[in-house]
Nucleic acid binder design. Structure first.
Lengths: 343, 343
DNA sequence: TTGTATGCGTTATCAT
DNA sequence: ATGATAACGCATACAA
């Protein structure tokens, strides 16, 4: 009744070997798929292991092979539901590939450096990141690790950096065409942080298509946001103060678009899609909520994650030598009420 | 110009020692805070290390000490923005304590077992989880690891399990009192999954307070949801089909409450707070969005995470021996438009 | 198929 | 303060 309690040394393969009456290497083989071992020996080992509660220790294998099968995942901004979903998908995909996720949450570029130092001391095999910050310094810090790096929606470049991007530029063009089709004469671009390369690309595609459609630059409005709901809301208030009544808005992400929709209704008495049409990006769950019914671009995170895993596998193949490639995944326009045809 | 390229062996402390002209132990000491080493030697070592691009390897230390300073964080359901925020806070707190996060995303109880096996093979020091599933089997699987476990909002019990809970029961009572104050005669409880211990506690507190306030059981309505927006929406439709016009609703979480608000407006033409008052739980960002203005209970994740870290530290102190404690953190009622007094 | 012996890159102990 | 040496727990090359 009163057993255990005292600190118990971890069970090692040697303990199992002793109980099973075999050598330590036999124990190792019993747990190594495809190793050369007789069924009988294997059975004895597994039995002894079970009775002792032995759990193989992967740490020594890391020392021997130099591979930890851990991938550093650097995130920031889970308050955006889009990233939350993406990280879930990624974690699942990595685990299915036998890779562990060593998570690192980063607030700013400053913490990134020390964060990376910590990660690399655990001998991670690679880094996967969805950080929007795309400075040259960050790229250099990542390349200094001399391990494969896979980025989402990033403009980072370097010999070790591969990238999976949503077709931000193309989506911007599609958004612009929809504006033109709907006879929006003064299209509004609600931009994300200028640091955000994906946002810049969306805005650039939007701008170019409008240009080609012959919409004069004086009739295009650019508002600055920071990817939050509040910044979308505030942007509309600034529009109101300028006495502008918008007809069509393309927002760099869904959260700002939701803020814009609420501001249009609450502050200006404008409703979607009757008075103004609006499009977002990311297709977050809230875009489908009835209060918004927001038309949005779905990044197809499933496909992006699959591509990222392919790049990662390929990069890990060529152990210790740089690998760099870029993938682009088309975004899918999900039309909802906010751009529905009226009248 | 054309250097590097070929696979380069990792730089070890021996390499640094050679270059610095000191022993390998000196290198180790130079990187160990508080070790006995002269400033001069230290300088030589750091210089050589920098020139070689040496990065200390923590893996051997794990073998020696048996501590990896990695904590397994088991998550599920990041689609709920509440959990996304919580995980960010937790990751930050753990890193500040010098602990790494080995992330594990789990869809169901089935994957949990194999997931735990993988984690434990990396010799994680502890497990932190916010899983809502609270079966006896899960508790046993966790305790079998024989390492400290810290849970959020869970009913799991076991010698190795500590828990930080929101005061779910107390919040349920507060919600009920607000219903009574507002003269709601047929209060509605919109429950989360029955597996979810936190949800059960909220419902139980709600029920008990109504009981004590003399609201007859026949005048209380219970609806079953599953914590999603859609399930909240659907629950209201079922109410409509039963010909019931609700006056007051307490929802087990905010996402269901948002769904309910939308359904009430879209399907039944009812508005908050004029026709019906509604309360949620979690205080997710969307609760503050203007379309909802949802009154909610804030779990004060910051405080809960702090408590969790305290429990974790304490549990890690008594290495190898069971530790179990429970903390309760009062939730804070955040009143918004959905329960505002009218008329 | 099986066992023996070696090594992975550190930290800790001991002697100097 | 410094250097030599012994662990840590496993996988693998080699011998049997």
């Amino acid at each position: 009744m009163g057993q255990e309690q005292t600190a118990i040394r971890t069970i090692t393969s040697i303990d199992v070997a002793r109980v099973a009456g075999v050598s330590q290497s036999a124990v190792s083989r019993a747990f190594s798929p495809g190793a050369s071992i007789s069924p009988e020996t294997r059975r004895k080992v597994l039995e002894a292991a079970a009775s002792l509660g032995y759990r193989p220790n992967r740490i020594p294998a890391i020392m021997l092979s130099g591979r930890s099968y851990m991938v550093g995942v650097v995130i920031g901004g889970l308050e955006n539901p889009f990233y939350a979903t993406a990280i879930e998908r990624l974690a699942t995909a990595l685990r299915e590939s036998g890779l562990q996720v060593l998570l690192m949450h980063v607030d700013d570029a400053l913490t990134l450096d020390s964060a990376l130092d910590q990660l690399v001391s655990y001998r991670i095999d690679a880094v996967v990141t969805s950080l929007a910050i795309g400075s040259e310094a960050v790229a250099q810090a990542l390349c200094a690790l001399r391990i494969p790096v896979v980025c989402f929606n990033s403009s980072l470049v370097g010999p070790w950096i591969s990238t999976v991007n949503s077709n931000n530029h193309g989506a911007g063009r599609i958004a612009a065409r929809l504006m033109v089709e709907r006879d929006v004469t003064r299209p509004v671009w609600l931009a994300g942080p200028t640091k955000n390369a994906a946002s810049r690309a969306r805005g650039e595609g939007f701008r170019m298509e409008l240009q080609e459609a012959g919409i004069p630059e004086t009739e295009r409005i650019r508002l600055q946001g920071n990817d939050t709901y509040d910044s979308g809301y505030e942007a509309m208030r600034r529009l109101q103060e300028r006495g502008i009544r918008p007809e069509g808005i393309f927002s760099s992400n869904d959260m700002m678009a939701c803020g814009a929709i609420d501001a249009l209704r609450e502050e200006m008495g404008l409703h979607c899609p009757d008075d103004v049409i609006i499009m977002g990006y990311d297709n977050i769950p809230q875009a489908a909520w009835r209060s918004y019914g927001l038309t949005s671009f779905d990044q197809r995170t499933g496909r992006m994650v699959t591509r990222a895993m392919e790049l990662l596998d390929e990069a890990l193949e060529k152990k210790d030598s740089p690998f760099s490639r870029t993938c682009v995944v088309d975004a899918q326009l999900i039309e909802r009420n906010s751009t529905a045809r009226t009248g």
